[in-house]
Amino acid sequence: MNILVIADHDNQELKETTLNAVDASLKIGGNVDLLVAGENCDAVARAAAKISGVGKVLKADNPAYRNQLAENIAPLVVELAGEYSHILAASTTNGKNILPRVAVGLDVAQISDVTSIESSDTFKRNIYAGNAIATVKSTDSIKIISVRASSFDKADLSGDASIESIDHVFDAGLSSFIKEELGATDRIELTSARIVISGGRGMQSSEGFELLHKLADKLGGAVGASRAAVDAGYVPNDMQVGQTGKIVAPDLYVAVGISGAVQHIAGMKESKVIVAINSDKEAPIFQYADYGIVADLFDAVPEFESLV
């Protein structure tokens, strides 16, 4: 079996979720190649070549691929697909955007957000916000799979793969990049953090979130948020944890001022240890928490910070 993994990156850095996608590929078994499509993405290709288990890195370097536009990247993947039995990507917003277009190009189904590899054609995935888990078997000749990064380990970085340039250029001319507003890039990435501190509507304001940032900085963790906090404008969208936001599974998840809506739980319930801090002792979040503190978060969080 030959497996192609589409690397997620921003032309400068390889996203860690790519390591999870490679880990999933190694569980399927076979040769694993990595596609780095971007512009001036040498550093990414070099980082990708270090991933253990990767046979070769295919580098497609062209302005058409700079912004990961699905209309341009998908035809490139389709062009390369002939040699592969599986095509994988992490289900990041890039992976989710590109893969279905690849599936259509090959006239095969896609299996989304896989959480477990059972065999080379059988996979598990969550449905109904994680209230049910389906085991599905693909009958297609090429399997297109997006994987939930938090369900897999990170592949090691002790490899030394070759880098091969590919010069197919697909520029559909259908879409163009205007601008982007990035969230705080100096902080630890939410999906790969070992500790996540999340705040909800109970934080009351953006200033309230500063308390969480202080605690997270001290613990070496990242800060997340519930949908309610994002909708209220306290924090930007890229911090949302939940069914439709980011799915996280850190060693420690601390939910502060979060009531525990089903869609939030779906994004964090695989965390190893869950702590809830909420003034309402009836809040549903306590049903999922290993440890609960019923207290005013504006007292509890600073105290927590002072003790660590």
Partner: peptide, 11 residues
């Protein structure tokens, strides 16, 4: 709404 923040495209 993308993982890194917000991205604006012209289609």
């Amino acid at each position: 709404e993308v993982d890194s923040g917000l991205q604006t495209l012209s289609l």
